[in-house]
Nucleic acid binder design. Structure first.
Lengths: 208, 208
DNA sequence: GATAAAGCGGAAGGCAGTTCCGCTTGGGGA
DNA sequence: TCCCCAAGCGGAACTGCCTTCCGCTTTATC
């Protein structure tokens, strides 16, 4: 192919987002902390089971709270999603390292991408929020996005070191490519095939 | 890679959609035809320039017509999109054959995919509608989707015949993979790189 | 011109997002 | 222990969009 994929781009200036935690002078009230947790639990449940976009009002109702309270804690749907899935995403990203201990890098990469897609696909009613994690737009998701990119980079680098993956691929590009997959509704077969297609594009080829 | 992309899936049963044109007994009233054209023009303009999802009410307003009239002619946003871009899509698909006359199949494929992505990317405020063309869900788009798939298949087959593209790839999968790209906001560089990444996955590799 | 059918407009109802403000409550201080 | 007030809460209200519906207007035919 005459115009092959042309290497890692110059990385954008990465400005760390301002720490979202409140200033230390005032502790959070107990009821507020409790309600926040209720909202997270409700959101987690609803996001996982619903097959359409979940309204923030519905989250509040499920938590036994008013919509105003939802907004007090999470200004946007994205913020709620981010908080609800932070631990799961972290777990997913940690799995990258573990997979590398158990199997060759290229196998680990495919396995991990499969888990990633599976994770995303199991969250109906989240496509918009997930999309904004994958695309680089939102400031909010910088942290989560970085985490995912780090995991991907670890896998890719290991494959490069082992000589099984090409060296000129940018993790953000891979993430972007994967991003298509979970949006395909009710087609796990196809999702899997496309994943393999992308994986094939990542293989090292001796001559080029 | 241990689990490579595994071949073309069994094609689903393809039921032709019922012809959407009205029964022949009654001609369409002149004002209705005129208004329909106005709506198409307005939609075309708005879709191309707006950077957010366009409301159907806005389309009506731009055409100097009421929202009821919009719905009379186009029951959904998707239907309006489909009609507004039918000719352009056809033109894009025809270009596949022309490209094949001018250059090798693999080059033609890359070029065509680039045009496809460019076409889609130039239509802000259409991501949802375009998405439903790419994903196989909607009945409405069966026709358009088929057209696009035919073009892709033509290109892929030519590449297979020339020995430059692998033979086991399904056009629907390629379309699905491409589908990710235009959703990346304001990142033409990345879109291009991901495109190349996918293209690399399509290359024929002698050994496997 | 009269008339019936086709077409049009926009009001109305519904729903989700978001803001705002009066009421409630937790918890530190007297 | 009680008081107080800032933090927190609830939901009404406003917005904007989608969609339906029905009385009015226009077209084409006779």
């Amino acid at each position: 192919m005459p115009e092959p994929y042309t290497g890692r781009p110059t990385p954008p200036p990465t400005t760390d987002p301002p720490a979202p935690r409140r200033s230390t002078d005032k502790p959070v009230r107990a009821d507020a902390r409790r309600n926040r947790q209720r909202l997270l639990t409700a959101a987690h449940d609803l996001f996982a089971h619903a097959d359409t976009e979940v309204s923030l009002e519905a989250v509040g109702r499920a938590a036994g709270l008013g919509v105003g309270t939802v907004y007090r804690h999470f200004p946007t749907r994205d913020a709620l999603f981010e908080a609800a899935y932070r631990s799961e995403v972290a777990q997913l990203c940690d799995a990258a390292g573990e997979l590398l201990n158990e199997r060759p890098a290229d196998v680990a990469l495919v396995e991990w991408m499969g888990r990633f897609v599976g994770f995303a696909a199991s969250k109906r009613g989240l496509s918009a929020a997930l999309g904004s994690v994958v695309s680089s737009g939102s400031d909010l998701h910088t942290r989560t996005r970085r985490q995912v990119l780090d995991a991907l980079t670890t896998l890719l680098d290991a494959g490069v070191a082992a000589g099984t993956l090409r060296a000129d691929v940018d993790a953000g590009d891979v993430l972007g490519a994967i991003g298509a997959i979970w949006r395909i509704p009710d087609a796990p077969d196809q999702a899997r095939r496309i994943l393999m297609l992308i994986a094939d594009g990542l293989r090292h080829r001796p001559t080029g």
